[in-house]
Design a protein around this nucleic acid. Structure first.
Lengths: 215, 215
DNA sequence: ACCTGAACACCGTTCAAGT
DNA sequence: ACCTGAACACCGTTCAAGT
């Protein structure tokens, strides 16, 4: 029996696992560590989950379930598609260490299917045939996840992040400008783009405009 | 001393590590396993690499170095951009288990910087200012990597892959069509899109057209 | 310069058992 | 239904030592 007599539950374990991943990275999420956090034996976890992989599945589903998919409107497809992708982004962004788990599992969870259904419908309205819509839907979801996970994995506190940005910038600016003129010129923007909201907004635009382009 | 008196080398170890990841997944890439494959003690690895993380760095750099970046031409920017992204894709596609390591390390390797330099130059020619070009360049590279890594990680042989596709299709087609009409209708396309060249070609187009759209 | 040997603190997982 | 205890086969890594 766990701490203060509180029974374990799948939900509680998954929630703690996501917190752990946010704070210390996915590598810190360990059967034994999670057991310890809940003042319980490692083997107690195996009553709630078949194995570690199904724990990771549950973490991914937890994230996908937290997406607040906006209700359909009678507005144009592109605005609605953008809103759905933005909702996915908003749900994943606080959890960059976990987001990568979601990409392979969207079609295996109920909330993921609801999301896919909406995206497919809008892509059809945009003029894509079934195959192109399927391809684009999978890719759009993958890309939004990539938007979140691409940030260089910093295992530091939020204030050391500023140091990391400065250091990346300095490294890029120290490159030979004759070989890498554009990289050197764009060093400040390359070093901190993952911290700016514009990075996410502009690239969501790129994706939606891309759908326009192939429709 | 290793098998048949052959000295270890960083290159040989990295090459074997990539092969291992291709065949059995990234989780199979282990200091101890790699040592065993080279008929050597695990600690021998630590003469060639600081730690496991620098081994993974080296694997990522190995992949990025294998990108055959096409020479600049005086053709239009969009065709050249597409060709560069296609070259990146072609290099990563045989190594889906390793490709994910590359996204955080592009700007930390020499071949990655060459690639970034070319992409930034072309995005500038497309009309993006320095900041938008930097954002888009990082995202385009991330997205191409996502294109490769998004495929559901099958740890099976190439012929069991057909079974996996059939099974995914059956699962999607068994869903209630009243709730998920578009998913059910697109089940065949959703289940096998990662195996079709069109998936990659069409989504490269989506990205390039997206740049057109925001320029 | 390149590698070995022994040891340490971790993993995931199985199996039998307790209440 | 929910959890413990002991055990097994793995990890990455350090430290001292060999040639």
């Amino acid at each position: 029996m766990g701490k203060r007599g509180v029974r374990l539950s799948r939900e509680a374990i998954v929630g703690r696992a996501v917190e752990l991943a946010d704070a210390e990275g996915l590598a810190a999420v360990t059967i034994r560590r999670l057991a310890q956090e809940n003042a319980v034996t490692p083997m107690a976890m195996y009553w709630h989950f078949d194995d570690k992989d199904s724990l990771l599945d549950a973490m991914a589903e937890h994230l996908i379930a937290s997406v607040d998919v906006p209700e359909p409107t009678d507005g144009p497809w592109d605005g609605q598609l953008r809103a759905i992708l933005a909702a996915l982004l908003a749900a994943l962004r606080p959890h960059p260490a976990v987001a990568g788990l979601a990409s392979a599992r969207v079609l295996a969870t109920e909330p993921g299917l609801r999301l896919a259904e909406r995206v497919l419908e809008l892509l059809g309205r945009a003029g894509l045939d079934t195959r192109r819509a399927a391809e684009a839907a999978m890719f759009l979801v993958s890309s939004v996840i990539a938007l979140v996970t691409a940030a260089p994995a910093d295992r530091r506190g939020p204030e050391d992040e500023e140091d990391a940005v400065r250091q990346r910038k300095a490294r890029l600016q120290a490159l030979p400008p004759s070989r890498y003129p554009h990289v050197v010129a764009a060093a400040p923007e390359l070093a901190n783009c993952f911290d700016r909201d514009g990075y996410f907004d502009d690239n969501l635009d790129l994706l939606v405009r891309g759908v326009h382009g192939i429709a």
